[in-house]
Amino acid sequence: MSRESDVEAQQSHGSSACSQPHGSVTQSQGSSSQSQGISSSSTSTMPNSSQSSHSSSGTLSSLETVSTQELYSIPEDQEPEDQEPEEPTPAPWARLWALQDGFANLECVNDNYWFGRDKSCEYCFDEPLLKRTDKYRTYSKKHFRIFREVGPKNSYIAYIEDHSGNGTFVNTELVGKGKRRPLNNNSEIALSLSRNKVFVFFDLTVDDQSVYPKALRDEYIMSKTLGSGACGEVKLAFERKTCKKVAIKIISKRKFAIGSAREADPALNVETEIEILKKLNHPCIIKIKNFFDAEDYYIVLELMEGGELFDKVVGNKRLKEATCKLYFYQMLLAVQYLHENGIIHRDLKPENVLLSSQEEDCLIKITDFGHSKILGETSLMRTLCGTPTYLAPEVLVSVGTAGYNRAVDCWSLGVILFICLSGYPPFSEHRTQVSLKDQITSGKYNFIPEVWAEVSEKALDLVKKLLVVDPKARFTTEEALRHPWLQDEDMKRKFQDLLSEENESTALPQVL
């Protein structure tokens, strides 16, 4: 008996699950189920560990084997000379395990699969056993689809999209007709009724959600790893209520002995410091949205989908001078704002400069500016000194954290500008005749005249004003913003236009 009217009423009120309206889709043409990776026989039982391990490696599972009696060998002398080797079968990115008779397991190899009674669906509900069930008529011709799209860092995100009359449910929550939600590992998919569980979705590319604290899981769906560094790992996640993407940084307390840091400095109150950081608001710094204190720290951040500045300059790639100017102007505005709010970044580098898009002209935002507030000064500097390429001379020669101030950030900005303009770092371990530390503390950077011949004198002058060993003589952010190279009204107008595109209400910060 159909429950279409009941569920449609529920759909009209929406769902609290991570779902959002989605535009129309072009329906895929039908194809045989076997060619799409559906096993030839149905099963109602969950797999054992041996079955799972075989399939996850990209080899055929026991459900897909063919009797050897149906095959015969071709003698080598009868092999056609022009026969080309077969292409290897792509490894599946996800697996659906059937929970009921009449449904088959599915190895997801393609990027898009339609499910329903219509014969054009890649996964067609046409098993005779299924057709005899009382629920068969409640399934729509095109009930739902599972697909994946390219996300940040060229990774993939799996989604389920509801197109049914009676509802598609993920972990008992209604997706909603015309809406989608991301699928995470071990999600249970039910059709027409929330208790009519048909599939379990296994994402073969992500970790299980159960490793994360419950308070975090209640608000966010964790997904793929976006990156990792000395101070922690960053994962893509989704807000459950809105389906908006965020980035979540995970900082290990054990790695940084944060408990010991608190004992050594009783004034170090991470929760208080995070609340201060959350109040920071500038178009060129990453917004801190939320914070969870569990076995590790979880910092929920605004997501930038254009990648890191590092990706644009790695491998001796240089940027156009006009692009360097647009990016560097924004970096200076961001660091100036942090300094005005009493925050020294201490870890400025291309990896911590994020881009809003893949376009050459785009907004940038500074991230990882609050680590000293979370990890403690000593722990952070011990970590950073392991990779000193961007560290100021006074940091390398000081004991502990004494003896330096916000000028350290201006040195790091000078190193970043040098790399963007030239395509190579000013200080490098590859210069074996002088140690990296000695290069930095003496201010002897690697200047290649033929490379810098293409760079304007004004740009080079600003680099020199920032890479000054004496912090008292080094340019401040205010002085850098007043430098002739940055007195470019076309560049500032472009920045204002980019801000307006992102948010019509965002105004250009005042600069002296």
Score class of each variant (00 low, 15 high):
D218E: 06
S35V: 13
K131V: 08
V211P: 06
S53D: 09
Q11K: 14
A17H: 14
C108M: 03
G14Y: 05
V109A: 07
T138R: 04
S2R: 13
N105M: 07
K141V: 01
Q209T: 12
H54W: 08
S41A: 10
S155D: 03
G14D: 03
E86S: 04
N186L: 02
F202L: 07
S223T: 00
Q36G: 06
S40R: 07
T168V: 05
G229R: 01
R95I: 01
Q20F: 03
V206L: 15
Q69I: 03
D218R: 03
K224Y: 08
N110D: 05
V25L: 10
E161P: 05
F125E: 03
D134P: 12
C121H: 06
E161Y: 13
A9Y: 08
N184S: 05
E271A: 06
E149D: 06
V170E: 02
Q209W: 14
E263D: 12
S210Q: 00
F238G: 02
I250F: 05
L130R: 12
L174E: 07
L174T: 01
F144D: 02
V66A: 12
K141Y: 05
L191W: 00
K119R: 10
T242C: 06
T26F: 13
S155E: 04
T68F: 04
L96T: 04
N112T: 08
S49F: 11
N171E: 12
V175P: 00
L96P: 00
E271T: 09
K253N: 05
T205P: 13
W97P: 07
I258F: 04
H163D: 13
A190E: 15
T272W: 03
D126L: 11
V211G: 02
G227M: 00
A267H: 15
D82I: 12
Q20L: 11
F256E: 05
R117T: 00
K255F: 03
Y156L: 06
N184V: 08
L60A: 05
H143P: 03
N110M: 12
Y156S: 06
S49W: 13
G229W: 05
P88L: 07
E87G: 11
K141A: 13
A247E: 02
L226S: 02
C108S: 02
H143M: 11
S260G: 12
D101V: 14
S16Y: 15
G176H: 05
W93T: 02
T242S: 04
D111K: 09
V198S: 00
T89C: 15
R145F: 13
H13A: 08
E84K: 07
T168L: 10
G167E: 05
T168G: 01
E70M: 05
Q100R: 14
D207S: 05
P92H: 15
Y139R: 03
I248C: 06
M46E: 15
D101S: 12
F147W: 03
T43K: 06
D203V: 07
D208K: 00
W97L: 06
V200I: 07
S5K: 14
S192A: 13
S228D: 00
E127T: 12
G116M: 07
K135H: 06
P85Q: 13
Q83P: 11
R195L: 02
K245A: 00
H163W: 10
K224W: 02
S16T: 06
Q29G: 11
V150F: 01
K197D: 00
T133H: 07
S164W: 00
A98Y: 11
L268K: 12
E70S: 08
L183K: 11
N166L: 03
V246Q: 04
F256G: 09
V7Y: 09
I221C: 02
S210N: 00
L130I: 04
S73N: 13
Y113C: 06
S41R: 08
W97A: 07
G14W: 02
K244T: 14
V211W: 03
E233C: 15
N184F: 09
D208A: 13
C108N: 07
G37F: 15
M222F: 08
A9W: 13
S28H: 13
C121T: 14
E4I: 10
T242Q: 05
E271P: 08
S140R: 01
D82C: 10
H22P: 11
S67V: 08
R217S: 05
N48P: 09
Q11T: 11
T205S: 04
E81P: 10
G232W: 00
R145T: 00
Q29S: 07
N105Y: 13
N196G: 15
E263A: 04
Q51L: 04
L204Y: 06
W97I: 03
K177T: 07
E173Y: 15
V109P: 02
S35N: 14
L99M: 12
L204V: 15
S252V: 09
N186I: 06
F144M: 13
A91T: 06
K142F: 08
E81S: 08
D101M: 13
E86C: 12
C18F: 12
V170C: 06
P213D: 02
K142L: 09
E149Y: 00
N269Q: 04
G232M: 02
A261K: 03
A257G: 07
V234D: 00
K224P: 14
I38G: 07
D203C: 13
K119E: 07
H143N: 01
A261V: 13
L71W: 15
A94Y: 00
D162L: 01
G165T: 15
E79W: 15
G259M: 09
T26P: 14
D118G: 13
A104D: 10
S33L: 09
S32A: 14
S39A: 10
Q10S: 10
K131R: 15
L130V: 06
K177M: 07
Q20H: 03
T172R: 08
V206H: 09
S40H: 15
S194I: 06
V234A: 07
C108E: 04
C18E: 08
F238W: 04
Y159E: 14
S50C: 04
C243P: 05
V246S: 06
A158S: 04
H54N: 06
K249L: 01
V170L: 04
H54Q: 13
E76G: 12
D77E: 06
S62W: 07
I258A: 05
L226F: 15
D265I: 14
K197W: 01
G165C: 07
L60E: 03
A190V: 06
N171G: 08
V25K: 11
T26M: 15
T138K: 07
L129A: 08
E79H: 13
A257W: 04
Y220L: 03
G176Y: 12
S260W: 15
D6M: 08
S5L: 08
S16M: 09
D6Q: 14
D208W: 02
F256L: 14
S12E: 13
K214M: 06
V270A: 07
T168W: 01
S228F: 15
R145L: 15
P182L: 03
Q78T: 03
R195P: 03
F103R: 04
A261D: 04
E188S: 07
Y156F: 14
S44A: 11
N186Y: 03
H143E: 00
S55P: 07
F115A: 07
A17D: 05
N48I: 12
L129Q: 09
E107R: 15
P47Q: 02
C121W: 02
K177H: 15
D111W: 14
V175N: 01
Q36R: 11
N185M: 15
S49M: 07
K235T: 08
Q69G: 02
Q34K: 06
M222S: 04
V170D: 01
R180A: 04
S223A: 05
D82V: 12
L174N: 07
Q209C: 01
P75E: 09
A9Q: 09
E233R: 10
R217C: 14
G37L: 07
E86T: 11
S15F: 11
W93H: 03
R95T: 02
A104W: 13
R117P: 02
V198G: 11
A9M: 12
L106I: 07
R180K: 15
P266L: 14
E149H: 03
A98T: 05
Q36H: 15
R180S: 15
L183Q: 00
V234W: 01
S15P: 07
Y139S: 02
Q83E: 15
S252Y: 12
E84S: 09
V109G: 14
Y113G: 01
N154V: 02
I251M: 10
S49R: 07
S55W: 07
N186D: 06
V170T: 04
A17P: 10
A98E: 02
A264L: 06
E4M: 15
E84H: 07
L204R: 02
C121G: 08
Y139A: 02
E233F: 05
S57Y: 03
S155Y: 15
V270P: 08
G151V: 15
R195S: 06
N112Q: 10
S15V: 05
S164F: 01
A94I: 07
N185R: 13
G232R: 02
D207G: 12
H143F: 01
S228M: 15
M46F: 13
K153Y: 01
